[in-house]
Write a protein that binds this DNA or RNA. Structure first.
Lengths: 118, 118
DNA sequence: TGCATATATTCCGATATGGGAATACGATGC
DNA sequence: GCATCGTATTCCCATATCGGAATATATGCA
């Protein structure tokens, strides 16, 4: 077996930085392919190819408008990524570190109040 | 050029589902390689190889203990992923949808109070 | 010293990638 | 109908991947 295709899921699709840039560019709203070409400074075929991948994993949708194709972000497809990575947020977030401190303190106080040792 | 190596960054490293499983297994605390082999049901060499990738992008750290190597999660290395994907949370989160509703309402009220039209 | 255990590395092969260049295709305007 | 614009597809190629199997390395124990 080889590496899973980029079109396997959102995790694989967003591993490519240009594709993340495309999604970032779409955050403000619909864009045509040529808009994206200008914004990213890439060759048009590469942009179309990246868009194809993003379409296949449902990260973007297309709408036809004359000879243009207007691409729109579908952020919902990022939810699995967000859900997975969020589990680890407490590892680095100061908010959670503070929470740990508070919980430890509460526990200590409770033990003291109960007269328990150790 | 080809696809960027899996060791390029956390985005590429976590595109592989087995590596996410490894990180999940390490969420509870340190594990030896053989622990992970049992937990994941993979062959030992594959686990070692995945761990190498995770090490190279700093998602795990190792500690030697006799002939064992104990791997530990370094969730902090996931922060870039979390930061990037979190920008899009508002796209699907009900919480944010509600916020939009409230903001719209406030705006309408304010306009009404000001005597503004349209 | 010798053997078993724990882990890492190497070699193999099928597969897909991403960029570049060329080209195909569909809609538009004259 | 024809040139043109906007976009998609195809071909080429150097590069990695991941799994499997075999093997290497190192530590510990008798």
């Amino acid at each position: 077996m080889a590496r899973a295709p980029t079109t396997t899921d959102a995790f694989n699709a967003i591993a490519e930085p240009r594709r993340r840039e495309i999604l970032d560019a779409l955050a403000d709203g619909e864009r045509s392919v040529n808009d994206l070409v200008r914004i990213l400074g890439l060759a048009q075929p590469q942009v179309s190819k990246h868009l194809r991948v993003l379409r296949e994993v449902d990260l973007v949708t297309v709408r036809e408008d004359g000879r243009q194709r207007l691409y729109r972000l579908n952020g919902h497809a990022l939810k699995p990524v967000h859900d997975w990575v969020s589990k680890y947020e407490k590892t680095w977030s100061e908010r959670f570190e503070q929470l740990d401190v508070v919980l430890d303190e509460l526990k200590r106080q409770e033990e003291g109040a109960d007269g328990h040792d150790k």
